[in-house]
Structures are given as C-alpha cells and as structure tokens.
Computed example of a mutant assay.
Amino acid sequence: MAKEINNLKTITRTEFGKGSARRARREGQVPAVLYGHHTEPRHLLLNALDFAAVLRNHGTNSLLTLEVDGKEQLALPKQIDVHPLTRVIEHTDLLVVKKGEKVVVEIAILVVGEAAPGTLVTTDADFIEIEVEATDIPEDFELSVAGVEAGTQFTAADITLPSGATLISDPETLLVNVIEAPTGDDLGDDEESDEEGESAEDSGKAGE
C-alpha cells in the first residue's frame, strides 16, 4: 500500500525552455509541474536520484510529500516522461491530492504461482483501474494461478480491492486465461500442414 509517504524536497523553477530543462537534467534534477485543486500550476525541480528511487521502490503510484517553499504538499505522479534510450526521467506531471481524497489510478496485475501441469497461462490485461484513497493505493495486485486447471479465467471482478476502493474497469475485463498447453502432436500437425501446403505450391509451379 502507499501508506509510506515519500518526502522529496523541491526547488521552484525560475528558468524555462528546452535549454534550461537540459541544464537541470545535467545537474541531476527533474523538471516537474504541480497542479490540481484549482491551484495555479507550479514549476518545480526534483532531485533525480531521490525521485527515481521512490519510483523504483514503490511504483509510479507512489504518494509523495513535497516540500514546496517551506510547506508540505501531498502529490501523485500523473505522467512520467522517460527517454527511450538513456531511461533518464526527463519530466513529470504531479497532481495535488489531499488526505482522504479518492483518486483514479491504474494498478498492475502480478501473476504468481504455477498452474496445473499441461496448461498454458496467457495474460490479456496487465492492469486494472480503480478509485481509491490517495493514502491507500496498492503497489500491485497479486493474482495466483497456483494449481489452476485449464479452462479457468480470471476477470477484473476476481480481484480483491482495498476497503473503500471501487473498481472502475469493466468487471468482465479478462485478465488471465488458463488453457491447455499445445502438445507435440499439435505442433506436428501444424508442421505437416505447412509441409503439405508447400508441396502443393511446388506441384502447382511444376505444372505451370
């Protein structure tokens, strides 16, 4: 759960533009915009290492306690822009939240355990969307398939939510499907079909 509040100091940004953002990143800072609750957007800088550590240890739904101009402000990461090659956090949007307030967030589904022998576990959805108190956000939901037989399906409705949370995703959203694993004979039939098809094509070409 997101009950551990992560403290991060901030610096108010006074320079803007791509050049100033690049300088900030070179100096180990992440440009950020804090907004919400009808407040004026505030442009901030976060310590890149501290922010990355919070995300790594507690996930992208981590509840943050920001020190902004000497005052504390609760916030949630709303969007995190990461460079596709360097994986450096380039920018983040932060949403102002208040204690007791509910927010809508996406929670990852973590499949654990081994299904019954002779089965194949397929994942159809990696997350579900819920509404939950900002101070009670789960890091993920574990979905156990231990010993599950072929023909079993798990939907969003099968996930146990925290007290007071509401499922936003369609309850019938398929998360995990356990099916019979293909056998060697099944694979052999496919290969034979391919070979027969190729032979038919070759015969057709020979007759042209």
Rank of each mutant, 00 (worst) to 15 (best):
D189N: 10
E198L: 14
D194C: 03
S199W: 09
A200Y: 00
S193D: 09
P182K: 07
A181R: 13
E196D: 11
L174W: 15
A181C: 13
G188H: 07
G184M: 13
G197K: 01
G184P: 06
E196T: 01
V176H: 11
N177F: 01
V178D: 08
V178M: 04
L187N: 12
V178R: 08
L175A: 05
V176E: 12
D186I: 01
L174T: 12
L175D: 09
D185I: 05
I179T: 13
E195D: 11
V178Y: 02
E192F: 05
P171N: 15
D186V: 03
V178K: 10
E195A: 12
L175Y: 14
E198F: 04
V176R: 02
E195W: 10
V176W: 02
L174H: 09
E201N: 05
G184S: 13
D185S: 02
I179D: 08
G184T: 14
A200D: 02
D185Q: 09
E191S: 09
E172Y: 06
D185R: 13
E192T: 04
E196M: 03
E196I: 06
D189S: 09
L187F: 12
E198S: 05
G184W: 02
N177S: 14
S199Y: 07
G197V: 01
E191T: 10
T183H: 12
G197T: 01
D190F: 08
T183M: 14
V178N: 08
T183N: 11
I179H: 05
L187V: 15
D185A: 11
D186H: 08
G184H: 06
E195M: 07
E201T: 07
E192N: 05
N177W: 00
D189K: 04
T183Q: 14
S193M: 03
N177D: 15
D189C: 03
E192K: 06
D194H: 03
L187D: 03
D190G: 05
S199V: 02
G188P: 00
E198W: 04
V178L: 07
S193T: 07
P182D: 06
G188W: 12
A200F: 00
L174Q: 08
A181Y: 01
N177R: 13
V176N: 10
E172N: 15
G188L: 09
E196Q: 05
V178F: 08
S193C: 01
E192W: 12
T173D: 15
G184E: 15
E180Q: 08
D194F: 04
T173F: 11
P171H: 08
L175P: 09
E192S: 04
V178I: 12
T173M: 15
D186Q: 06
T183L: 15
E201D: 14
P171V: 13
E198V: 03
G188R: 14
A200H: 00
E201H: 00
L175S: 10
E196G: 00
P171M: 05
G188I: 03
